[in-house]
Design a protein around this nucleic acid. Structure first.
Length: 221
DNA sequence: TATTCGATCTTCT
DNA sequence: GAAGATCGAATAT
């Protein structure tokens, strides 16, 4: 009946977002003339039990897409200059998403190389969440668009071949929940990004008194 | 080869 | 006002 495409990972409940993440390995994402095969992803739930998730404090203007229906992109900007994308999972109303961390360029290689002149080799073209976005030429305009019905700039397709063994470990760059092994990657794949432990933010030399945080209506001058 | 640091700005408190 | 699901160049060893 319905011509609407539905994939298995879309029907998993929010609490099974880690399973959805595993299932998405090997899938292909195409946009703007380049296709990438996903080799590394991370799961985020934000159901209150996942402090590393953007959604764990509840709905905000930014993370609202995470609470929406599965199969759409949640794109956010990080450090004022990079964009990263998640594929929303889980039922509508409950936050769950899979961060796309790395991939292998399987089509549009020439274009990908032009978009990533800094890459040392082809394996490094999309070896990182922001690099992946750059290769696909996606930005905030892709936020809240579908990847399953062709209505948005990016389209997701099932794996051409079964991915090999999958490994799991702690997520990269998060400032909490280091013990949750929700980063998944295809074992031995050269395009998987290097693991970086949480890097404490460097503060200006001037350290204020170790007071936690000022009262929030202290806006007087 | 490993580690450190600067760039740059949106979002939330 | 401060932190942040990063990248790439520079520095240290």
């Amino acid at each position: 009946m319905g011509g609407v495409v539905t994939y298995g990972w879309m029907e998993l409940p929010a609490e099974a977002v880690d399973t959805a993440a595993r299932e998405l390995l090997g899938w292909r994402l195409s946009a703007n003339g380049v296709t990438v095969r996903l080799t590394e992803v991370e799961a985020y739930s934000g159901l209150g039990a996942d402090p590393a998730s953007h959604a764990h404090r509840g709905v905000t203007n930014r993370n609202a897409v995470m609470f929406g229906p599965a199969g759409r992109l949640y794109v956010y900007q990080i450090y004022g200059m990079h964009f990263c994308a998640n594929i929303v999972c889980g039922e509508e109303g409950r936050a769950a998403a899979v961060l796309l961390r790395a991939g292998e360029v399987v089509d549009g290689l020439e274009t990908a190389r032009e978009r990533r002149p800094a890459a040392r080799d082809d394996a490094g073209l999309a070896a990182g969440p922001a690099k992946l976005m750059q290769v696909l030429a996606l930005n905030r305009a892709a936020n809240d668009t579908s990847v399953i019905d062709g209505s948005g700039p990016a389209t997701l397709s099932p794996p051409a071949t079964e991915p090999g063994a999958i490994e799991a470990g702690p997520r990269v760059g998060v400032t909490s929940a280091h013990d949750v092994p929700w980063r998944f990657w295809i074992s031995g794949d050269p395009t998987v990004s290097a693991y970086r432990r949480h890097i404490p933010k460097v503060r200006p030399a001037v350290r204020r008194s170790s007071r936690p945080s000022p009262p929030r209506d202290g806006r007087g001058g």
